[in-house]
């Protein structure tokens, strides 16, 4: 299953990377005579309400969606695991301080914060790494910043429980240092929820990107990411279902394959696998 999933995911990635070279229809060619047309040979995925080719848009937008999805997930997981692990293994004030930060981030109202971030950093990043790169970094950091807290709390909870378990006690009695304990013994055993969180975060990040572009924080409005396509299509769900169908299916397929890969990963990592 995991192998098949890797194959599909590779295919999907290859499609968005090299697809535009093969399917050369421009993404923003407006053709009012072909608006909202269902899939056909000319437009395999149909067209949207300005008559733009959906296949071309899906391929183009997929690059951004996949990149944002994975990068934001990586940020969320890395930050979350780091904070969760440190807080879970240390006690007292370090734990309290880190959990305070977690609580703070959980409590922050997202929308005003996003508007503030746009206002403060957009022009700065645009000048620093260029329009597209700046937006990409900003989006990934913002989505990551809003999604690491559950991971941190999950990892910490796992640590709290695991650090008292027999095998950890045993390793400690044998003189293992704390970093070694964490890396060799506790962390591998607490990855279960992390993998689940990671897979959920990819989907969440792809969708969150579309919300951000609505706030003017995302890519310019004419860049068709998958989440954006889904959002634009929603009002036409009963008129032109094909519009939403392919974007939804692409996100689903991505999530599905990542999950199976994740499952495979955990089974492979787990010393006591039951198969």
């Amino acid at each position: 299953m995991a192998v098949a999933s890797i194959a599909i995911l590779t295919l999907l990635t290859a499609a968005v990377l090299f697809g535009p070279l093969i399917w050369r229809m421009p993404i923003n060619e407006i053709d009012f005579t072909a608006r909202l047309s269902p899939p056909s040979w000319e437009h395999p995925f149909g067209t949207d309400d300005l008559g733009q080719d959906l296949l071309a848009r899906m391929l183009y937008g997929g690059r951004i969606s996949l990149a944002v999805g994975f990068a934001a997930m990586a940020v969320a997981i890395i930050v979350g695991v780091l904070i969760g692990a440190i807080s879970g293994i240390s006690r007292g004030s370090v734990d309290a301080a880190l959990m305070w930060i977690t609580d703070l981030f959980l409590a922050l109202p997202q929308l005003p914060l996003l508007l503030l971030v746009i206002y403060l950093f957009r022009d700065f990043l645009k000048n620093w790494v260029g329009a597209e790169g700046g937006v990409f970094i900003l989006i990934v950091l913002v989505i990551g910043a809003f999604r690491w807290m559950p991971v941190a709390r999950l990892v910490r909870a796992q640590f709290l429980s695991l650090r008292e378990k027999e095998f950890v006690e045993a390793a400690r009695a044998l003189g293992a240092t704390t970093p070694r304990l964490v890396i060799r013994h506790i962390l591998p055993n607490s990855l279960g929820p992390v993998i689940v969180a990671g897979t959920i975060d990819v989907a969440a990040a792809i969708i969150a990107e579309s919300t951000l572009s609505f706030l003017g924080l995302g890519f310019p409005p004419d860049i068709p990411t998958w989440g954006r396509l889904l959002f634009d299509a929603k009002d036409y769900l009963d008129i032109a279902p094909h519009w939403a169908l392919f974007a939804g299916a692409a996100i689903f397929l991505t999530v599905l394959t990542i999950n199976f890969i994740g499952d495979g990963l955990r089974d492979a990592l787990d010393p006591r696998r039951v198969m």
């Binding site: 969708i207 959002f231 769900l237 996100i251 689903f252 999530v255």
Partner: peptide, 22 residues
């Protein structure tokens, strides 16, 4: 169960809500 779960979190609530309304 897994497949349903994946469908569940790949589709945002703005989409499923609308689907149910329709």
């Amino acid at each position: 169960a897994n497949t349903f779960a994946f469908v569940g979190f790949s589709l945002p609530t703005f989409f499923t809500g609308l689907l149910l309304i329709l």
